[in-house]
């Protein structure tokens, strides 16, 4: 039987609203990780800018430096502000049947992956994350790269727990794989 969409939001038993859920914040040290990595990135950019100005035939190098450096500093400040303010938006929630991750200060995105559609989950740790003993949980689906879910800033034990929980749930909910 076909039912129109309007009739369907009535089934409250299975349809807990997202707001009923406690969203978890990621670890505070992740802010340090993202700031540190953006500092590293901007150091590379500054080096590149210096190289370009020094080796090119610009006549007035002072103006070159002035324009180049001030725009880089401006971008860095913007990046810093967005990172700090956007940090609060990075939250995740585990529900009975899916996992949710939200992010984005200007462009907010909320990604939900049902457990029975997860193909594979793994923990990743970059060099800066290693300093702060944080992990990223990466969840792969068949939906392609742009839909993969990454939850950064998880302490080792939390990350492992979530990963085990997710994989257990996937095994329970999931269909037999061909």
């Amino acid at each position: 039987m076909t039912t129109n969409f309007e009739n369907l939001s009535v089934d409250p038993k299975y349809l807990p609203g997202i707001s009923d859920f406690e969203f978890q914040s990621i670890h505070r040290d992740h802010l340090k990780v993202s700031i540190l990595s953006s500092i590293l990135f901007f150091i590379v950019v500054v080096a590149a800018a210096i190289a370009i100005i020094e080796f090119s035939e610009i006549e007035d190098k002072l103006i070159g430096y002035l324009i180049g450096m001030s725009s880089i500093v401006l971008l860095f400040c913007l990046n810093f502000i967005v990172a700090v303010l956007g940090f609060k938006k990075k939250q995740y929630a585990l529900r009975q049947r899916d996992i949710i991750y939200t992010k984005g200060l200007i462009w907010s995105v909320r990604t939900t992956v049902p457990f029975n559609r997860i193909q594979h989950a793994e923990l990743k740790q970059g060099p800066i994350e290693r300093i702060f003993k944080l992990n990223s949980l990466k969840i792969y689906t068949a939906g392609g790269q742009s839909s993969d879910l990454v939850i950064p800033g998880l302490p080792e034990d939390v990350a492992l727990n979530i990963k085990d929980f997710v994989l257990k749930k996937t095994a329970e909910d999931g269909q037999p794989k061909a």
Partner: peptide, 14 residues
């Protein structure tokens, strides 16, 4: 057959 659901909002949309 949907694998992942995303809800996105730009600053304007919000």
């Amino acid at each position: 057959k949907v694998q992942v659901v995303k809800v996105t909002q730009s600053w304007y949309q919000r």
